[in-house]
């Protein structure tokens, strides 16, 4: 699900439109925090795509939770 660099930064490996995977990842995350509504892009509230701690990148998003 994640690509980790040497500094422990986590990048979601499935891109911008992998809604099932983003939902699954959020289901098992104890730190999920919904972003403000206007920034949601997934239909299910509990999705990494809707999380305040995701930082969009050109290819996907990084998870901002400390490693």
């Amino acid at each position: 699900m994640w690509l980790k660099d040497s500094e422990g930064k986590k990048a979601f490996r499935h891109g911008h439109v992998a809604f099932n995977q983003a939902s699954q990842a959020a289901q098992v995350c104890g730190s999920f925090r919904p972003d403000v509504e206007e920034e949601w892009v997934a239909d299910e509230e509990r999705s990494c795509y809707n999380c305040r701690l995701r930082r969009w990148t050109a290819e996907s998003f990084d998870c901002l939770l400390p490693a």
Partner: peptide
């Protein structure tokens, strides 16, 4: 309205890049 702007490593933004 929310307007999406460029997502790029050279653009400073917190978690998304949009204006209102």
């Amino acid at each position: 309205t929310r307007h999406q702007l460029l997502i790029h490593p050279d653009v400073p933004y917190t978690s998304h890049n949009s204006s209102m």
